[in-house]
């Protein structure tokens, strides 16, 4: 039996990476202490945790700000992406008129349009600029994946719906939407991560408004050479990213669980 085909117990999927992580952190801790690395170059894990605990009120506020922008950007991207995808499969005219601009938005680096957006919304509304930039980044995977999904309906099923006189709405709701669901969920996983990246990059470029997000904490900590706090902010950012990914993966499993090939466990 080859190693790849051996079934892995679900618990092992959690335990093994955690053990690896613990080993790496332990080595890190020992090396920093052994080689007496200065804390503004590489702080020991223990120091990062201490910094996280002592600074947690301000860090949590920053986490909340970043989380809020990420979530709002994701939800807006999801709603507009799905709506435009549905519109574009209903009408060829809408499709050919929208798509080039969606691609332009996608391929233009968000960093490059940040100053423009800032001018448009005004410097007193930086949070709005962050939201717009993060949304632009998160939008495209939803649009392109959903459009692809809506179009990849089995031809015979399409004929079957026509045969039984399905209305446009019935076809969309009972056929195209379910067929597009796996594609949409794939798009959502990409887009959830991109929304967070968008929120962070936008804050790096545009600065923070009234409240500072995690990205701004990192910039600020770097300026003050408070490297432990920078690592603490970084830790929170990746925890946030992981949480978003796990939630969306869970949603995918929940919705596709029994019917889609991707969610099937094969035993051989």
């Amino acid at each position: 039996m080859s190693d790849e085909s051996r079934p892995v117990a679900p618990a092992m999927r959690v335990i093994v990476p955690l053990v690896l992580g613990a080993i790496v952190v332990a080595i890190w801790q020992v090396l920093v202490w052994w080689l007496e690395v200065p804390k503004f170059v590489l702080p020991a894990p223990s120091l990062i945790v201490r910094s996280l605990l002592s600074d947690y009120p301000s860090l949590l506020v920053s986490l909340w700000i970043t989380l809020r922008i990420t979530l709002m950007a994701f939800v807006i991207a999801l709603a507009t992406g799905v709506a435009l995808a549905v519109l574009s499969v209903q009408s060829r005219l809408v499709e050919i008129s929208i798509f080039p601009y969606a691609v332009i938005l996608q391929v233009t680096p968000v960093v490059a349009i940040a100053p423009l957006i800032l001018i448009w919304v005004g410097v007193e509304h930086i949070d709005r600029a962050l939201l717009i930039l993060a949304t632009i980044v998160a939008f495209f995977p939803i649009l392109s994946n959903t459009t692809l999904g809506l179009k990849s309906v089995d031809h015979n099923l399409r004929d079957l719906f026509q045969l039984y006189g399905a209305t446009r709405w019935q076809r969309l709701r009972l056929l195209q939407m379910p067929a597009a669901l796996p594609y949409l969920l794939g798009g959502m996983k990409i887009s959830g991560g991109l929304a967070l990246i968008g929120a962070v990059v936008a804050e790096f470029v545009a600065g923070s408004g009234t409240g500072a997000g995690l990205a701004w904490r990192i910039v600020e900590s770097a300026n003050r050479l408070n490297i432990p706090r920078m690592f603490a902010a970084l830790l929170l950012l990746s925890a946030l990213g992981i949480t978003i990914f796990l939630l969306l993966a869970g949603l995918e499993k929940l919705l596709l669980g029994r019917w889609h090939e991707s969610a099937m466990q094969r035993e051989r």
């Binding site: 039984y164 019917w259 889609h260």
Partner: peptide
């Protein structure tokens, strides 16, 4: 007043047997 059977079963993979068979009535 026809029923059509394709070369492939042409079932909706996301729906149960009941939902698949219910479809023509549902569309009506």
């Amino acid at each position: 007043s026809i029923g059509f059977v394709f070369q492939e079963p042409t079932l909706m993979p996301w729906a149960t047997v009941f939902e698949n068979v219910f479809l023509p009535l549902r569309l009506a």
